[in-house]
Design a protein around this nucleic acid. Structure first.
Lengths: 346, 346
DNA sequence: TATCCTTACGGAATTCGTAAGCATG
DNA sequence: CATGCTTACGAATTCCGTAAGGATA
């Protein structure tokens, strides 16, 4: 048994049992892949794959129970490598963050500026996609951290931690009848076409729930995966936009008016950060978690067992309150950009 | 990185960092061991061992954090092998039980008769030793199951499950003044020299505690690791023996009288069964656990997470009540010896 | 001096990749 | 007939063990 064999099998599982693809993905010959897999099967005296003629078509029962063990083996091997990198150069390396547009564009900028001042030798890579993709990338080991509001909570194979809570707000162009209009109700908003997120994205479920609760059936004229698109169409006068609070607070332009009090219509959403279960992270990854979720202590993040307990016990910071924290934090690192954050009215 | 390298490192940790010993233990040359270890260190670009001149004298910090990962890797590799054996021939293989004399001689005989009728193709090996040794053998992966009363509870790296509870009784030769003497008190017993277990063995702590509570300072004339030795000296008239209940109930000879009611003097002890954390066991091993601790369900035993909860929630069977269970159980397996069990009076 | 790790080096075993064979859809 | 797994076989690499070298207690 060797790691190469295990890698081939995992890759086969991730590539529709197509050994040709596996070979090209791992830059080797498919004959080698085929042989190594057969060799492992012979050594263990089980068949892992069901073959029809000369094609792999399924996992055997034995293969099905071996798969998670193989997964863990490769995971631990990865951990050993990461662990050693930690000692070679603790503050140098790569950090891959899988996240959604909303987080990447409206939350992470400030965070990553601070982070990269603290760890100038760490190359940060942002991988952007749907919450579902974020989950997949974590599970496949293609990303170190995942940040999203949807889809990652309670996912098997992941450990997730709440970072902060936030609300949706309604935005309109300046001069719109609802602009600055105190006492606006959700019913008033529902009179206009709505432009908001696609289902599955950025707390969309909370938006739907709010209308449902009020017995309203709004005309969702356009749904987009990111707030920039939503803003574009709102600016064109196509309707009222409903976006995450941080879009308005952290966005660079002030081309919009928020509908006063509109945040109260929608239940708060919680942005979570997740890591693959059993994965060992570099110290700077833990530091980034700490920046994003200052209420968690490192032991909680590293220990798998206590997660459930802590999730209940720890009070979440609302998004707005985080500004202070971030700035205070930054002061501890002299090189950090210390300009005051924008504090848009919600 | 390969498994051989990891095995060498683990063996080094278990052999005082003496690579010569490692080589002979693993039937290879020490030059090979040395080279493989250096090769892994080079690949990971860390030093795992502190060398003084040409001698390994300690683990580096990096080595200290790598060690548990290496341990897990080898554990999972073991698991993969076991898992495959499971599919090759589910009911054939080997089962190594580490246990103490008391369990081996007075509890396991009935259990193993039943077990080996059910699994005639499983070779059972009993490894006998002190409770501390039982723990070590489990942690080193040299035994599949550990059964003892002491030392295994709450040990890091082990998962333990209570099997049944039992009490100590006082035994005397027939014709002894206390034989059949109703109303005997602990004070009466303490008048005589006591012959019982060595500290650390078979619930000895409960015996000491009972005398302590009663403000008595008995003359422990002789302490032995096993009940057979105790019985020998009791028979010679050297004093009153205090032994585990099953010694009297399951022992073959009736050369002794128990002091009526003496079981009530001592707090009950609980025999536990333990397995190494993260170890995957063969199906028959789980079956043996089930025979020994019928109140546990298999999911509880296999799942690491729920152990703590179940330990509280599940009611323990007292030892005496287990006779019935064992017999009922046996009936489900026609080949099993069905003769009624001895039911000695306690 | 006895013990013990490292290095050197030749032989053995394993792994790898090209090419050909053959089964499937 | 295009795709895809298997087998064969020679080349490259890696692994292993003997033997010699050097360091420690």
């Amino acid at each position: 048994m060797n790691f190469q064999q295990l890698r081939y099998i995992r890759a086969a599982l991730q590539n529709d049992l197509n050994l040709t693809k596996v070979a090209s993905e791992l830059f080797t010959s498919q004959s080698g892949v085929s042989k190594q897999i057969k060799e492992l099967e012979a050594e263990l005296r089980i068949e892992i794959f069901v073959r029809r003629g000369k094609r792999l078509v399924d996992l055997t029962e034995a293969g099905r129970s071996a798969a998670p063990v193989i997964e863990r083996l490769l995971q631990e091997a990865e951990n050993l490598k990461r662990l050693s990198e930690q000692f070679v150069q603790a503050d140098k390396g790569r950090l891959i963050i899988a996240t959604t547009h909303n987080q990447a564009n409206y939350v992470l900028p400030q965070v990553l500026v601070s982070f990269s001042h603290e760890f100038p030798e760490v190359d940060v890579e942002l991988r952007q996609g749907s919450p579902g993709l974020v989950v997949d990338m974590l599970l496949r080991g293609e990303a170190d951290l995942g940040i999203a509001t949807e889809a990652i909570d309670g996912k098997a194979g992941l450990r997730s931690f709440p970072c902060f809570s936030w609300e949706h707000v309604a935005i309109v162009p300046h001069g719109h009848p609802l602009a600055g209009q105190e006492g606006t109700t959700l019913t008033d908003i529902a009179e206009y076409p709505i432009i908001t997120y696609t289902p599955e994205f950025t707390g969309r479920s909370n938006i739907d729930a709010a209308f449902e609760r009020a017995g309203l059936h709004p005309d969702i004229r356009l749904a987009a995966v990111d707030a920039d698109v939503i803003k574009t169409y709102v600016q064109l006068g196509m309707g009222v936009g409903i976006v995450a609070q941080m879009v308005v607070e952290n966005g660079s332009d002030q081309a919009f008016a928020t509908v006063p009090g509109s945040n109260r219509f929608f239940a708060p959403s919680t942005t979570k950060i997740a890591i693959a279960e059993g994965a060992l992270l570099r110290n700077y990854a833990y530091r980034l978690i700490q920046i994003l979720a200052p209420h968690l202590d490192e032991r909680t993040v590293k220990g798998a067992r206590q997660v459930e307990a802590s999730r209940e016990a720890t009070a979440l910071l609302p998004f707005a309150a985080r500004h202070d924290l971030r700035i205070r934090d930054a002061r501890r690192h002299p090189a950090i950009d210390n300009r005051p954050q924008k504090t848009a009215a919600v």
